[in-house]
Design a protein around this nucleic acid. Structure first.
Lengths: 336, 336
DNA sequence: GTGAAAGCGCTAACAT
DNA sequence: ATGTTAGCGCTTTCAC
């Protein structure tokens, strides 16, 4: 393995000069620089990032803490899309990505801070974390620059990227109301998820603004799972047959709701309208295809990485970015 | 940041002893070890992996070279599944993962070997690479331990994980033959993809073994893309209306074929049978749902990582692993 | 414009 | 069982 020492020998200069030349410092003779660059190329030199990181105390590396990379999480590739976005941005801005695992059997063996310090990552992006996750507390207390996806925490070192979930949910419910619906139920996700709280808020606002009373027992929890959503919708349908539309806090749950309706012999959208959230890939493939609120997860990832690097480089004016959502009309909703 | 030096001071021993104690060497007094461990905990010590990597010349890190992490690759989450599998295994076996980007704008700025050497990765997993990719040649010439997903290259330092694609394709075509089909076309992927060559072989073998003649003009190329497959199937249908079944080398292309048939007013499977390959998530959601050859990409990733770590630790008996495929019968094929 | 020297945090001979 | 010492490859004062 070639080192700067090797280069310095061949070039007949000191390692200092080699280092400076290679790093583009100005105080080095153009002749010398040229020669050094030449030799480095010939010797097929690549810098040792470990050594550099050791002395500079930073590694040009961003840590990635992702939950939802297990065998079960195949159905919604939201996580993957976020990953792709991060990957794209990070490579443009010349960082590498190191993947920390959070949901294996070895989980929680190391704390968040340990993970980061050991690897000397410059910053971290966290995705798929719940509000009650112990990591979250650590994040807020630590001084490691960090960007959260879909959790609005802002401190001196922590920022976040999210969509306007209140507005998104509001759009969904307003769409149903415009179609003439008044009896609108909601299948929410986890009550420990930030987005759930927000979407519930949007649901309530939309109803109130339109003079419709919010009924507590029309709001059920599907844990963001297809099967669970199916269950709760089944019981919802039997207990409150007067509902004509359901707003689901995720497409996956909307698919569960779809199944529940079909099982009850209800035709969607003729008998009952269903609107989802996310616009996952499957949304356009299920029958009937799902009307939904689209969020661009690729962009979410991209912006998260972009914000973090901005923060690292002291270019971030504000430490949060809010992305837009969009109503996508398909077949699962109709005028009453 | 606490270092072993800090610990050594507090404990009143040398850094060597601290190092040895922390790394579980046997030649250290139990009393001393206990005290050191205690102090390390109190001081909230975490080791600096950069420093360790620098001296040990290895980093307990596995590099990941993935193509297909861009905005377009959202439809088949095969890549993601492989990633999840790798991630799972790697964390069990106590390595971290570093993600190298290969298809950004900055692509090819650095060579494969540079990427690896700079980061001092112990080994690499490569996924989604084509046979004519310049990286591949480099891999074979380099001495960095490497496992390839779906490319059968084996050297002293390179191994691979794949499925038996010949057998898989054979299963698919035999299934069609059993259903009474004789006029079976094939939509293949890229001729620079290893799996394509194999699947073509399986197709030909199945036909020959059943006394059916292989017709060159019944074999078309869809570039593994849905749109492209639709195009070529459209022209196939008009030029050779006698075909009763199509074997597609991927589910995505099978979906394209499906669309082509529908556009031509053909009912699948009544008028024509279609069988895919992969068993992607969408396969069970399109209408009609796709009969296909399932490969378990999560396992593929898991085994790739497992094999690599075995190689790194000198435990690998053989440097390749072949996984099984399975026929999944759904609605897109029927008896003639 | 260039070099000598120190040091980042750690491991590993080689003593003792 | 423990300490001394050197050194991994790099950057960075400080001096010339």
């Amino acid at each position: 393995m070639t080192t700067i020492k090797d280069i310095s020998k061949v070039a007949g200069v000191s390692v200092t000069t080699v280092s400076r030349a290679l790093n583009g410092y100005s105080d080095v003779n153009e002749e010398t620089r040229k020669k050094i660059l030449e030799i480095a190329k010939q010797l097929n030199y690549s810098p040792n990032t470990l050594a550099r990181g050791l002395v500079m105390k930073k590694s040009q590396t961003i840590g990635l803490l992702v939950s939802g990379m297990n065998r079960e999480s195949v159905k919604d590739n939201l996580t993957f899309q976020v990953l792709c976005g991060i990957n794209e941005c990070v490579s443009v801005r010349n960082y590498d990505l190191i993947l920390f695992n959070t949901d294996s059997t070895r989980q929680r063996e190391k704390t968040y801070t340990q993970l980061c310090r050991e690897r000397k990552v410059d910053g971290v992006i966290i995705q798929g974390i719940k509000l009650d996750d112990p990591y979250l507390k650590e994040v807020m207390e630590s001084d490691i620059p960090c960007v959260l996806v879909d959790i609005p925490v802002e401190t001196n070192t922590v920022g976040y990227v999210t969509t306007d979930n209140v507005l998104g949910a509001k759009k969904a419910v307003e769409h149903l109301i415009e179609l003439g619906h008044q009896n609108i139920a909601m299948v929410n996700g986890s009550n420990q998820a930030f987005v759930s709280k927000q979407r519930l808020k949007g649901y309530e606002i939309a109803l109130k603004e339109n003079g419709i009373k919010v009924k507590r027992n029309w709001i059920v929890d599907g844990e963001f799972k297809e099967e669970m959503a199916k269950e709760v919708v089944l019981s919802l349908l039997s207990s409150t047959p007067e509902i004509t539309a359901i707003f689901c806090a995720s497409d996956l749950m909307a698919m569960g709701a779809l199944k529940a309706c079909q099982e009850q012999g209800l035709v969607v959208p003729n008998d009952i309208s269903i609107i989802g959230y996310d616009d996952i890939l499957l949304a356009s493939y299920v029958t009937p295809s799902l009307t939904t609120i689209k969020q661009d997860m690729f962009e979410m990832g991209y912006e998260a990485a972009d914000l973090l690097v901005d923060m690292l480089e002291g270019k971030a004016k504000k430490r949060h970015r809010i992305l837009e959502t969009k109503l996508v009309q398909r077949e699962s909703c109709t005028r009453i």
